[in-house]
Design a protein around this nucleic acid. Structure first.
Lengths: 147, 147
DNA sequence: TATTGACCTAAAGTTAAGTTTAGGTTATAT
DNA sequence: ATATAACCTAAACTTAACTTTAGGTCAATA
């Protein structure tokens, strides 16, 4: 099957100009053209799916582009591609871990303002904070402070 | 205790201009000045710690600023602040979940190129892919495809 | 036949989160 | 007394990832 840029945009919930931008940047190297109009194949769809996935894994477009260029080089770049993803795996894991830690602070703030609301003021909460703070929240805070 | 901007930068592993930038943007509203020179107190340090935490939780500076402004308004903004963090908690959780799913794709790619390397070529891998792909990886891929 | 809708390009503009530059003050060490 | 280090501002520049604008082609529909 072949698809137009508008169909692809809908499928992936991207804007048309985003897809043109990826194309211009060299992330979609193999797109067919008929009378100048882009025709996307299933293999292009796979590429776009991968791009969206890697973006969510916190990769930059220039790095995704690098990978795509290595792919075009064939088997000689297998090791580069492997190392690329091994490194990226650690980066993404680290980022997730950091976000989880930061989430603790957000959860603490939820507790903080829920309690302040119940007590009627921040001052009232601050006065009783030591006693009121649940152990769970205290350990969350410790987590957020840890490097 | 009071600290200079240089000391704070080291403490938080930020650049001096980053801290000046936060100040300029209104994220550090209460900094003392002596002869024009910023003097940071423990309460400023708490604010910076919070900013860094919220940044890691994927908040934008303008949202952090909004929160800081609400803080200055006093108890009348408790509900706004609570709703702010309740919403943010969901956003951050969603982001973590999306990253975890995207990580599956990165892990698949690690497996893919490890195996291609062992077999000597991508072609050899593609030929045997169906048989070789471990169940674990297959379910990872499913995860990555799922919305 | 004319106009509407989907496509195209190139180039300029936008936003976030800084960095860099250029020029200036102040405190301390030699 | 001078030079160095640490601070200051304002304004211009940077980068990533787009979006917007302006102008143009082409096919189908009223």
């Amino acid at each position: 099957m072949e698809y137009t840029i508008g169909e692809i945009a809908k499928k992936f919930n991207l804007t048309i100009s985003q897809i043109r931008f990826y194309d211009k940047e060299g992330l979609l190297p193999e797109i067919k053209r008929v009378n100048g109009i882009r025709k996307f194949t299933d293999s292009d769809i796979e590429t776009i799916f991968l791009i969206e996935c890697l973006k969510k894994a916190d990769l930059q477009l220039k790095d995704i582009k690098q990978f795509i260029e290595w792919t075009k080089e064939g088997d000689s770049s297998i090791e580069k591609r492997l190392n690329f993803f091994l490194m990226q795996r650690e980066k993404t894991k680290a980022k997730i871990a950091a976000m989880k830690k930061a989430l603790c602070m957000v959860e603490y703030k939820c507790w903080y303002y829920e309690t302040a609301q119940k007590l009627g003021s921040v001052k009232a909460l601050e006065a009783k904070k030591e006693k009121l703070t649940p152990k769970k929240i205290k350990s969350l805070l410790k987590k957020a402070h840890k490097k």
